[in-house]
Design a protein around this nucleic acid. Structure first.
Length: 646
RNA sequence: CGGGGCGUAGCUCAGCUUGGUAGAGCGCACGGUUCGGGUCCGUGAGGCCGGAGGUUCAAAUCCUCUCGCCCCGACCA
């Protein structure tokens, strides 16, 4: 799929929890009186009956609740849900720690996780929301193979280009395959064989499926795994206008999805990167632990990934008399910081020269001393160039006879190195730079025929406070988790793979494609990053594994236990998904676990309040307790859920 | 791929420098105690110390190789 989005993990085939109508029938048939195999390692405890692992929303639709028998209640004592106090040492971010502690995921290998029942329930809820919105936006679900033949990737050119992230495998006949990290090739391959006419267009196909990217460094649990669950969609249109329509439908669907999850997110412009195409947006969930940086303008609403973010005009430095360049000795000062400090000037008064190695030779870039080069922008400025890396000191000496740290524009020009300047230095005056001689810098330098770059462009990473390209106000840089990424692909793949149709005029043309990715596991992890406190997860209702936890405080008191069961059963019959904590544990343990797992609504039945004929209700998010008569408990819980949905 | 680190009980870790045949806490089992925010006490089960090879009378400990994992960096449709 597009973007580096997403990562989560999962088994191979779950993929269709939405078919729960059928799944439920199956379950019921099998369950009828039959002895269930116990899949559980736990010794004598009975396996729960058909623990539902289907899709749930806070409530099921009334029609369905009426039409079908309630599902078997989830009893914690018989469920597969084990919490832990201690966190594995490799869990660095809260979402990872809490998912492990709450018994939602279990690591199998680096970046590869099992989704345990509670975790799977949350993922399933998200998938249900995603399906609902994708379907509503006119997309059609299908499922494509995870294993893909190399030929297709050779055809699109990505077999060479993709690099080591592509997990390549061989079958017994030594034929090459890969485990799909995305499905442009596969979908384009069958579409080109099925579709001939503009009359068959447009359409948008999606799947929710396990993908694999052999990440260099998997980390952060579901946020950057190698095996992960992703929803990916691919649209095919006859015209750009049609693509625009599908694209905006997807954009709106994504907005609805993330809003429905109760997430604080922003949509920003993104670079189309090597996937190409004309337009791309990312959906970022705001989080300090996010791996992506986003520039945002609170004045006009402009937002963009920093790799893409443009920058407004820089203030032109005040008129100053041009000085004459002067060579100064700067022994041993090679870094911007050292030189600036040594010369007693701010880093912004320095012009930094960076030398890159590309497949077409060396290229040099001049940027303001306090700025970083944005390699994506640089690459975009060098058509035909795909590889970029900072040149080694040895190579610079060998090819140019220059020492890194003392390189200046004049020396680069003299050696005929292609020299690009960032806009931030175009109007610079009386700046300092390397003197092309080890141990020396120049001060009071100005542009001249001997040192001026051949071209200026926007080449740096935007910084906090830089002017907004739209309105000029200060941009703020924040971090986010990329949970969705949509692209207008155009004809990139359809041309490479000859996916063509005949238009009204009888002319064969490549289809105009779009692709739309959404990280399932990542989105759930992001929800936890945004919703947690010192005691555990605070789920938004739509993603909570259960909406209500009925906590039987004194399970050994038959009357209290019966009341707890009755409450849980009534809620189930009203379409609410309930977890009944019927474990014979101390109250403290049960309360701590309730907080950890983070079920939005808690109903305590037992103990003193039960003796007074009451149940104690509270919301995980504020923990305000209210005592209500047992007879009214179910109705009150429904009210609380309504309040949470508002 | 470069740099650093770690593999010892189910989990989190100590022991390794200065070789002498393995420990704690949590968890688990049993008994008692307790019973509205991870009770307390006792008893017990549980580990070929990641794997292979080497040095040695003797290796968790020293050496070599290997596998796996983690952190930093580079990378990231």
């Amino acid at each position: 799929m597009p973007g580096a989005l997403e990562r989560a993990r999962t088994l191979a085939d779950h993929a269709h929890p939405s078919r729960h109508g059928a799944a439920r029938l199956r379950r019921r048939g099998a369950g009828a009186g039959g002895v269930r195999p116990r899949a559980q390692p736990r010794a004598p405890r009975g396996r729960a009956r058909g623990a539902d692992d289907g899709v749930h929303e806070g409530f099921r639709a009334p029609a369905r609740a009426g039409a079908e028998a309630p599902e078997a209640m989830n009893r914690w004592s018989q469920y597969y849900l084990f919490t832990t106090r201690e966190v594995p040492s490799d869990a660095e971010v809260v979402s990872h720690q809490l998912m492990v502690r709450a018994g939602m995921i279990k690591k199998l290998a680096a970046g590869i996780y099992s989704y345990l029942p509670a975790g799977w329930r949350s993922l399933s809820k998200l998938m249900a929301i995603v399906r609902r919105e994708m379907d509503a936006a006119g997309a059609v679900e299908l499922s494509m193979p995870a294993i893909q033949p190399a030929e297709l990737w050779v055809e699109s050119g990505r077999w060479q280009r993709y690099g080591k992230e592509l997990l390549r495998i061989r079958d017994r006949h030594e034929r090459e395959f890969c485990f799909g990290p995305t499905h442009e090739e596969v979908v384009t391959d069958f579409v080109r064989r099925d579709v001939r006419s503009y009359r068959q267009l447009p359409f948008n196909l999606y799947q929710i499926q396990t993908k694999f990217r052999d990440e260099i460094r998997p980390r952060f649990g579901l946020m950057r795994g190698r095996e992960f669950l992703m929803k990916d969609a691919y649209s095919f249109s006859a015209t750009e206008e049609s693509l625009d329509q599908v694209y905006s439908a997807m954009r709106d669907a994504y907005r609805r999805i993330f809003a429905a999850c109760g997430l604080d997110y922003t949509m920003v412009e993104a670079d189309t990167g090597t996937i190409g195409g004309s337009s791309s947006h990312e959906f970022m969930v705001t989080a300090a632990t996010g791996e992506s940086a986003v520039a945002h303008c609170s004045t006009c609403g402009y937002g963009a990934n920093v790799e893409k973010a443009e920058r407004g005009a820089w203030e032109v430095p005040s008129e100053q008399a041009r000085q004459a360049a002067e060579k100064v000795e700067t022994p041993g000062r090679k870094t911007i910081e050292e030189v600036a400090q040594f010369l007693g000037i701010p880093a912004s008064r320095l012009v930094k020269a960076l030398i890159y190695n590309t497949e077409h030779g060396l290229v040099a870039v001049l940027v303001r001393g306090d700025r970083e080069v944005n390699e994506v922008k640089l690459l975009n400025q060098l058509p035909g160039t795909h590889h970029l890396e900072l040149a080694s000191a040895e190579r610079v000496v060998a090819e140019l006879g220059l020492t890194l740290g003392y390189v200046g524009p004049r020396g680069l020009r003299a050696r005929n190195v292609r020299l690009l300047g960032d806009l931030s230095v175009r109007d610079a005056r009386n700046f300092a730079c390397g003197a092309d001689e080890e141990g020396f810098h120049l001060v009071g330098v100005n542009w001249s025929a001997e040192n001026s770059p051949s071209e200026f462009a926007d080449l740096v990473l935007v910084g906090d406070g830089d002017p907004c390209p739209r309105c000029g106000a200060a941009l703020a840089i924040s971090r986010g988790i990329e949970v969705g990424h949509i692209f207008k692909l155009g004809a990139k793949y359809s041309e490479a793979m000859k996916c063509e149709f005949t238009d009204e005029a009888g002319v064969n043309r490549p289809m105009i494609m779009g692709c739309y990715g959404l990280g399932i596991g990542r989105t759930v992890a992001a929800a936890i990053e945004q919703g947690h406190d010192a005691d555990g997860i605070v789920w938004p209702l739509p993603l909570a594994p259960w909406s209500v936890l009925v906590l039987a405080l004194t399970p050994n008191d038959p009357a209290a236990m019966a009341a707890a069961e009755a409450l849980a059963a009534e809620l189930e019959s009203r379409g609410v998904d309930v977890l009944l904590d019927d474990r014979d544990e101390r109250p403290g343990v049960k309360f701590k676990d309730a907080d950890l797992v983070g079920v939005p609504v808690r109903a305590v039945v037992g103990g003193k309040s039960f003796a007074a004929g009451q149940a104690e209700l509270s919301l995980r998010r504020d923990r305000q307790k209210q005592l209500v008569p047992l007879a009214e408990a179910a109705a009150k819980v429904l009210e609380l859920i309504e309040r949470l949905r508002a």
